[in-house]
Nucleic acid binder design. Structure first.
Length: 476
DNA sequence: ATGTGC
């Protein structure tokens, strides 16, 4: 990105002054290196979002931001419904409520070393991965609606998980205001046999080792020690979320004019929050959030069954579950006034600071865990929201490494088999149905996650707590 | 991200 278009306000904060139709400034967080490497498209998209009706404070991009559909991935924007504020399907993303959850295992590296291959094979055999993968669960129409209304709480009630899991999930595992009636028959049809599946792309299930701690007090509260084995799952709402996104993008684009909205970019299709279409999308999107949380919950249950067979001494307690493609109504301080605003986080993790009621009691006084998934073969990080975060981008932080190369470009540069062999030589086991998928996800196709996390830490978006390294990765 | 592409 060309820095001449930006005003540097601090080490990691870069402003786009409002010009033309922009109602608020754009603010991009990142180190100088990350900003220089960022696509100019991000600046364009941040500026376009700043022109949408009812936007509050600023249009933000996180240090891992890259070009996306309409909004950048790594974009954060909040809208006031009473000032004509809008909701945008492209501002949430196609994979609604895609997210990460991390479980303790109660094991250390030595416990798994001898059964590593067996464990990798068992996880791969029982947790379907890849495009169009189907699970063992079939939902009839009544069960589908119950899932869409109940989220992870529904899954637990069906026997997939433990009641205490729900305390460690944003929204306690059930997004209020979901309306299964707003979800099309086609979206439901696509989802009916996809529960408990990972999907493809950057989704994965990973067994990881804690290699470094940066804040011992918070790490202790999160239950993390160097040498611990944890397990993380990264996936979302599969075909259902994708179908909802596709349908509402279309109807929002068609209805924009009737709502009196001029779009700076057709891809920014949106509807007023106080419109029928806006409310329908909210109902459907919240249902998709429940689908994603239920999906991660079912996968958790499958993981526990596999560990019970392979490593019966393991105890898989849920540390936390975050969703990084969402729009949520939240109360924030806007120029000294507490207001309810609709915060879009697209490829951005909520990063609430100490004291927030939605944070589990065990670490409410410290802040919420912010789970940052790495890319294939690279480290993941656990961070913590801070008080400062709340004033920066509505309590938001990065979500991962962020792509720096297109999928097509990546497949030209790497071969899946070679990537798998290279990682195996470093003791990292990969299981995937798609060699091409692995090539597309080659580590070099992404920004350096450590740089991204460091920038988030320095910017005050979240505080570094722990670093994790992959041991086994089941890849979609 | 995605029954990967109108």
């Amino acid at each position: 990105m060309q820095k001449k278009h930006l005003q540097r306000k601090s080490e990691t904060e870069w402003w786009i002054e409002p010009t033309g139709p922009m109602r608020v400034p754009g603010i991009i967080y990142g180190s100088e290196d990350l900003i220089e490497a960022m696509d100019d498209k991000v600046r364009e998209q941040v500026s376009n979002v700043a022109a949408l009706p009812g936007i509050q404070k600023a249009s933000y991009a996180m240090p891992d931001a890259h070009w996306g559909y309409g909004f950048p991935i790594g974009g954060v924007a909040a809208f006031d419904p009473d000032q004509g504020g809008v909701i945008s399907a492209g501002g949430v993303g196609f994979d609604i409520s895609c997210g990460v959850r991390t479980l303790h295992t109660g094991l250390v590296r030595d416990d798994i070393e001898r059964v590593k291959e067996t464990l990798a094979d068992a996880l791969y055999a029982h947790i379907p991965a890849g495009v169009g993968s189907r699970g063992a669960i079939r939902l009839n129409p009544e069960q589908m609606d119950a899932m869409l209304q109940g989220g992870a709480a529904w899954a637990v009630a069906q026997g997939w998980g433990l009641p205490e899991d729900l305390q460690a999930i944003e929204e306690r595992g059930r997004m209020a205001g979901a309306d299964a009636g707003c979800v099309s028959p086609q979206a439901k049809k696509r989802q009916k046999d996809e529960m408990g599946t990972l999907g493809s792309g950057n989704h994965y299930l990973e067994v990881q080792e804690v290699t470094d701690l940066y804040d011992s007090e918070i790490a202790t509260a999160f239950g993390l020690q160097v040498g611990d084995i944890v397990l993380s799952v990264h996936c979302g709402s599969r075909g259902l979320g994708h179908q909802i996104g596709t349908e509402f993008l279309k109807s929002m684009a068609l209805a924009a004019r009737s709502h009196g909205i001029t779009l700076p970019d057709r891809e920014l299709a949106c509807a007023p929050i106080h419109s029928e279409l806006g409310q329908q999308y909210l109902g459907a999107m919240r249902a998709a959030m429940n689908c994603a949380m239920a999906n991660r919950q079912i996968i958790t249950h499958l993981v526990r069954q596999i560990f019970a067979e392979v490593l019966p001494l393991a105890e898989l307690d849920l540390l936390y579950d975050v969703s990084h493609n969402t729009c949520k109504m939240e109360e924030h301080d806007i120029d000294g006034v507490r207001k309810n605003v609709f915060v879009h986080r697209k490829g951005a993790t909520r990063s609430f600071g100490p004291g927030h009621a939605d944070i589990p009691q065990a670490f409410r006084s410290l802040g919420q865990p912010v789970l940052i998934g790495g890319t294939l073969g690279t480290a993941s990080y656990i961070l913590c929201g801070t008080q400062q975060t709340m004033g920066l981008a509505f309590g938001s932080a990065v979500h991962g490494a962020g792509r720096q190369m297109s999928r097509r470009q990546a497949t030209k540069q790497w071969q899946g088999r070679a990537v798998i062999d290279e990682l195996a030589a470093r003791g990292i086991l990969i299981r995937s149905p798609s060699q091409r998928g692995v090539a597309e996800e080659a580590p070099g196709a992404y920004k350096d996650v450590s740089q991204v996390v460091e920038a988030a830490h320095v910017a005050g978006l979240a505080r570094k707590v722990a670093r994790l390294e992959p041991v086994i990765c089941v890849k979609g």
